[in-house]
């Protein structure tokens, strides 16, 4: 499968703790598994902020792909388009 480039935006607590607002990642394959691998490599020693193990995000990480919240549907084979925007957000705490 061909790779792709994605844009990753971080919000609130994650933006502060990771010290990142926006990054671009180049993926080996255009799917969610490859995205997680690239993200984990990029944030390195801070990966425990987002990851519970080598391949899975923590339960308190909310993901939107191209401004659609994907909830628990973070299947590794979900395809990503070139230029996809992936938002990494904490669980809402408004009100």
């Amino acid at each position: 499968m061909k790779g792709c480039k994605v844009e990753v935006r971080f919000y609130a607590k994650f933006k502060e703790e990771l010290g990142l607002a926006l990054i671009q990642l180049e993926l080996e394959e255009a799917n969610f598994r490859s995205f997680l691998k690239a993200l984990r490599e990029r944030i390195g020693e801070k990966s425990a902020i987002l990851f519970r193990d080598d391949t899975q995000l923590r339960d308190d990480v909310l993901i939107a792909i191209n401004e659609q919240i994907v909830g628990d549907v973070k299947h590794p084979e979900v395809t990503l388009n070139n230029g996809a925007i992936i938002d990494i957000m904490p669980l809402p705490s408004g009100g």
Partner: peptide
Amino acid sequence: KHEVPIWKKEVTEQRSYWVEGEK
């Protein structure tokens, strides 16, 4: 409170911290 992507930081006399959302 649980679904809309809005986040709250509490600033007290001692510190500031992000309030954790509930799953």
